[in-house]
Write a protein that binds this DNA or RNA. Structure first.
Lengths: 257, 257
DNA sequence: CCATCTTTGTGCACGCGTTCACAAAGACAT
DNA sequence: ATGTCTTTGTGAACGCGTGCACAAAGATGG
């Protein structure tokens, strides 16, 4: 479009498709790796391969941010890293609280990907009084009673819920009431939040079930005299006569803890 | 390399859309809860509310499985639980191996949602020799050298990667070579796998970045001229020149507890 | 300055997923 | 039986995301 100079954000971040937003972190990671290797520029083709996406898709994604590439050359790595970081809001510091310091909460607290992306663990919160004061990942755990105070004092707007399912909604309500407007939920429950609050969910159980579905499908086709697709990569025995475990007399609870 | 095609010919064999498959576990969870409360039947409206989706969508999803509802009444909870479980392949036993027993791997091993869904942790594997034999979640950790043997002996077809990013691809290759055809990846890396192998990725860093994007957008609008929802609390954020972000030593992400 | 070559940016078509809206199906009361 | 009432199952419209294909933009070389 108009021979606009390279510096022209032009259209604000108004119309960026959700799907594109979800891929920006992916591009950012690939670009960061290139940056560390001091690669000056990269073509859409190369970057797309590194990020595992289609090059046309990548170019279209970047087009929503503006015209940051140079035809015949590619994209300036450093510049793009900056632009994407800015667009994602990673040039500012985001204090985060983690509620529920069990196995998972501790793993999250130790997660290295936080700091390098502008996220800072402002506090670790747990309902168990015996945990209070105990340091996890170098940060002392605080009791739930302090929740509201912490959020307000530090201006926390992002909360991570890693509690058992049974406590999730209650914790969520308190976080929202205290001012949190974005929640990353690891508890296997559907959270109810007022309008204006974003919730993203991560659920291992669901991911595994989806894999199981496809796995079953693959096994079924294989056995059902095949059809098409999926050439036998490595014929091997895998299915053991699933001992008919009856009507799934399984474990009772979806379980909280 | 210009062709890292990771696409399948579309949802061919069975007509169930991918989006629907991804929601089935959600319905299953809601139904299981109802089942425990001995609720005999449920309408699409009620179940949809419990699962956090639109009722029309839910009905259409179920229509792909067949006509299991009764007009004027609703769906039989127990029957639907069985049908969905069967469709997802949860009526059989799925041995799973977890590779990389760090904070995250340990959290995964302790995850209670496994057993209740037909998943069984067949083995915990780590490259650190000093971990060998040490029990985690009641299961002794085994060394990477045993990987191939374990997979073949137990007929494992699902693998979970919870290693640092640097080791992920290598572990993935070994898993696939040994016979694994479904992988749940927690390492922040794009895995390259041959056709016929499914990979699902869980990445905490990406989820947080997406939240940050929306959070920034909300803050921006607020400043420009808000109008509705969410009372602005102390949305204070400190500035911090995103200087050097160090060795993006990204480590795995997360999972639900 | 012009020709050629590379790579971006995007118009367009297509397919998937979502949602609406309603006819058909069955339960239930009379 | 028959009518009414509830709720499913789905046809159809719509919108979003994806990928192709190509013209425009700019680099590069003569």
């Amino acid at each position: 479009m108009a021979t606009g100079r390279t510096h022209r954000p032009a259209t604000r971040s108004r119309g960026i498709p959700e799907a594109t937003v979800a891929r920006l972190p992916l591009y950012l990671r690939a670009l960061t790796a290139l940056s560390e290797r001091s690669v000056p520029t990269v073509s859409s083709e190369e970057l797309a391969a590194a990020a595992g996406v289609n090059s046309a898709k990548l170019r279209k994604d970047f087009s929503y941010l503006g015209s940051y590439g140079t035809r015949g050359v590619g994209y300036d790595v450093e510049y793009l890293v900056y632009q994407i970081s800015r667009e994602l809001g990673l040039t500012q510091d985001w204090p985060v609280v983690i509620v529920g310091i069990g196995n998972l909460g501790a793993a999250l607290a130790n997660y290295g990907g936080f700091a390098s992306r502008g996220f800072r663990v402002a506090a670790l919160i747990d309902a168990d009084p015996s945990m209070a004061g105990k340091p996890v990942a170098g940060i002392p755990v605080q009791h739930t009673d302090e929740l509201e105070k912490i959020i307000q004092d530090d201006g926390v707007s992002i909360g991570v819920i890693a509690t058992p399912a049974g406590a999730a909604q209650q914790v969520c309500d308190r976080l929202v009431a205290a001012g949190v407007t974005s929640i990353l939920n690891f508890a296997p429950t559907v959270l109810n939040v007022p309008e204006g609050v974003d919730v993203r969910k991560v659920d291992l159980s669901i991911e595994l079930q989806i894999l199981a579905f496809h796995e079953q499908r693959k096994a079924g086709e294989e056995a059902a005299g095949d059809a098409d697709a999926v050439p036998p990569v490595a014929a091997r025995k895998q299915q053991q006569p699933s001992t008919d475990q009856g009507p799934d007399g399984d474990v009772p609870a979806v379980m909280p803890a």
